[in-house]
Structure formats: structure tokens, C-alpha cells
């Protein structure tokens, strides 16, 4: 079965995120006050063939750990978006 999976990769807490900081500073200029903790990362949408949802998640986590994120500077979160299709 195919599972739609979202992998989000962002910089580890404590690693400087100049893009996030720049956007955070820009937002008030447009009138968006009260926004903080802006971080910039990458999002990957994957369609994964797997026997069930936990298996799809496990495969995505492994992909994130081994390729999609660099564990030295990045962390990832995996979300299975909907059930099997």
C-alpha cells in the first residue's frame, strides 16, 4: 500500500539559523507582530510503498536519518499524512 509521508527537516536548536532570523525581523515590517521562533528548513513529500503505516513511518525515519537530514546540524520529524491509498 502507498502512504503519503511528510518529512520536515530543520536546523537543530542552538545552530544559528540566519534565514529564520532574517524572516523574523522582516515580519513586523509587514505588520505581523508577536511572531518568534521562526525557523527555516526543508519539507519532503514522499509516497512510500509499505505494508502498514508504522512500516511506512519507519522507512521515512530511516531515510531522514541517512540522507534527508544531516544529523550534525539538522533534526527531522516524520508525519504520515493520510491512510493507505
Amino acid at each position: 500500500m502507498k502512504y503519503e509521508v511528510l518529512v520536515e527537516v530543520r536546523l537543530r536548536p542552538g545552530i544559528a539559523d540566519p534565514q529564520g532570523a532574517t524572516i523574523e525581523r522582516a515580519l513586523p515590517a509587514l505588520g505581523f507582530e508577536g511572531v518568534d521562533d521562526v525557523s527555516v528548513g526543508k519539507a519532503f513529500r514522499l509516497s512510500i510503498e509499505a505494508s502498514d503505516e508504522p512500516a511506512a513511518r519507519d522507512r521515512a525515519v530511516e531515510m531522514a536519518d541517512r540522507l534527508l537530514a544531516n544529523p550534525v546540524i539538522e533534526v527531522s520529524t516524520v508525519t504520515v499524512l493520510d491512510g493507505a491509498r
Partner: peptide, 8 residues
């Protein structure tokens, strides 16, 4: 790791 330059 090599990340983006400070100052982008």
C-alpha cells in the same frame, strides 16, 4: 558540517 555563511 559546513552550514550557510553567517550573513547569508
Amino acid at each position: 558540517a559546513l552550514q550557510k555563511n553567517r550573513g547569508l
